[in-house]
Design a protein around this nucleic acid. Structure first.
Length: 294
DNA sequence: AATGCTCACAACCGCGTGAAT
DNA sequence: AATTCACGCGGTTGTGAGCAT
């Protein structure tokens, strides 16, 4: 009976157009058992990889959909996953990266070896977001919750353009990070030219003109006090030639206990951060944690 | 001891995107 | 060019553990 229904559903779905991503009928849901984990791990080890996720459950003998298998493997069973709580350095890096990349958990996770996007997302939603709120910062923008820019709207215009700048920079950083993980690309000039769209765009006329606009906007460089929780820094960045080339830095990072009680940093920020998006860009971390960009 | 609440985390779902047909 | 497929991503939900009442 169930089998007949299953076949009927499949037939109808195929006739309607597209097949479902996985066969829902008879598929198990909910928490994975140790036996299922073992089957999945054994299959992937035995076959030297997962191959097609869609066909894996059938081949491995699991009553799960491919999507569920992939999730279980990437978020839990993968051998390179780092278990245990996040270190203070990791949390700091996540906050800093979130300031640049926003809710792009996969991009953030790519900078934290052994950590998954899901894990980071959960950490953010359960801990870090609240911590920022306690500090009086908007967890999405990393700006003071009560901040108000100039009423004449100039700040808004500047903010819009610098937000684009931040988006450019975000994409470029991702590209650089990716390339740094694939050093062989740098050994081959022909590959390098094709390796990343954003790097090319950044160096193209378009990117150049874009940088030119901000060169005039910011007079070529920008010095700004940075405050992110108990992290504070004074940074001078040469925006015209390379937004990440830090000329001067003075970095202080306090203990985690200080974070919840430190309200002075946010009030300082209120005074200094009319151009909130530029702040976002300037919040780019400047300590050794960003060695992946080197 | 029972109940309710909060929190953390694993898992699911829907959508977007690039590749294949 | 249009359609289908496979996959990855981000938002959301479900559930169990721990704690307070």
């Amino acid at each position: 009976m169930i089998l007949q229904l299953y076949r009927l559903c499949n037939t109808l779905l195929i006739k309607m157009g597209r097949k479902p991503c996985c066969d829902k009928m008879g598929m198990k849901k909910g928490p994975w058992t140790a036996e299922e984990d073992e089957i999945l791990v054994n299959y992937i080890n035995k076959n030297g990889g997962h191959g097609s996720w869609r066909s894996l459950p059938k081949l491995a003998g699991l009553l799960r959909c491919g999507k569920s298998c992939r999730l279980r493997w990437t978020n839990y069973l993968r051998p390179d996953i780092k278990r245990g709580s996040f270190t203070f350095e990791e949390e700091k890096l996540i906050i800093q990266l979130h300031g640049i990349l926003g809710n792009r958990w996969a991009a953030i996770a790519s900078q934290l070896p052994g950590r998954t996007d899901n894990e980071i997302k959960n950490l953010w939603n359960t801990h870090l977001k609240k911590r920022l709120i306690c500090m009086g910062l908007d967890p999405q923008t990393h700006q003071p919750l009560s901040s108000s820019c100039n009423p004449d709207g100039k700040a808004h215009a500047a903010s819009t353009s610098t937000r684009h700048m931040a988006q450019w920079e975000s994409a470029r950083l991702e590209a650089e990070a990716r390339l740094s993980r694939e050093p062989y690309l740098f050994n081959n000039n022909s590959n390098k030219t094709d390796s990343d769209y954003f790097l090319r765009m950044w160096n193209s006329e378009v990117g150049q003109s874009f940088r030119g606009v901000h060169k005039s906007d910011n007079k070529g460089s920008c010095q700004s006090p940075i405050s992110l929780g108990s992290l504070s820094a004074t940074t001078t960045i040469d925006l015209a030639s390379n937004p990440t080339s830090i000329v001067k830095e003075d970095l202080v990072w306090g203990g985690s206990k200080k974070i919840a009680s430190d309200s002075s940093s946010s009030s300082e920020l209120e005074e200094d951060s009319c151009d909130t998006s530029l702040q976002l860009l300037l919040d780019f971390p400047i300590n050794n944690d960003m060695s992946f960009l080197e």
